[in-house]
């Protein structure tokens, strides 16, 4: 088996002399996708100022991007408080772009925290605009980034599903949220509300 590790398969690779981008004559989709990832990683490494342009260790983090992300979130919150919900959505969207274009070698935990808050806030702004489908998706994305300690996002998707009349889905979702968050008060209340609506529906 160690002999397997000493050999390798020569692949049909080309390198563009100008852009240094790698390509292949092979029709393999997996190889093409991998080369796309590799070329993207190469481009982002070239932007580094570290010795040999290798990624710095995940910690400590360059604070610049985090500062920009929170600035955009704060601007969104200010607009939201003024009742300018569509403007708030725009700021949260910019914040998400900033957070999600963070270099991939930086701590994923930090990305999770940042995007969980931004998605949850954008969900709330969508709800204020009665855009239930958008709100439901954003709250789900927030939970994907942060499952525990995120009861607001669990609640918001549940509420959006109720508004769209998707009661059974809402019930499943909120029940899952309760498993994650313990008996959080507002989630408990929402589940009660959903159960009452389901009852009402089966009686009519």
């Amino acid at each position: 088996m160690s002999s397997e590790l000493e050999t390798f398969t020569m692949l049909p690779l080309q390198i563009d002399p100008q852009t240094k981008a790698l390509s292949t004559t092979s029709g393999s989709r997996a190889l093409q996708a991998e080369l796309a990832s590799l070329n993207a990683l190469h481009r982002s490494l070239l932007a580094l100022e570290t010795p040999n342009q290798v990624p710095p260790p995940p910690l400590p983090v360059n604070p610049k991007r985090s500062a920009n992300v929170s600035k955009l979130r704060d601007s969104g919150n200010t607009e939201y408080r003024k009742g300018k919900h569509a403007e708030a959505v725009k700021f949260y969207t910019l914040g998400l772009q900033m957070a999600l274009t963070r270099p991939l070698w930086e701590p994923q935990q930090l990305v999770r925290e940042e995007v969980a808050a931004l998605y949850a806030n954008r969900a709330q702004a969508h709800m204020a605009l009665q855009s239930w489908a958008e709100g439901a998706a954003d709250a789900e994305a927030s939970v994907e980034a942060k499952r525990v300690g995120n009861s607001k996002a669990w609640w918001r998707r549940g509420k959006c599903l109720v508004e769209m009349g998707r009661l059974i889905e809402a019930k499943e979702w909120v029940s899952k949220g309760l498993e994650m968050e313990g008996d959080e008060g507002e989630l408990v209340a929402l589940l009660k509300d959903i159960n009452a609506k389901l009852e009402e529906k089966s009686n009519s």
Binding site: L41, L45, N52, Q53, V54
Partner: peptide, 11 residues
Amino acid sequence: PDSVIRAALLR
């Protein structure tokens, strides 16, 4: 270039 080799090693 070395930078491409480094990126490939990281992948």
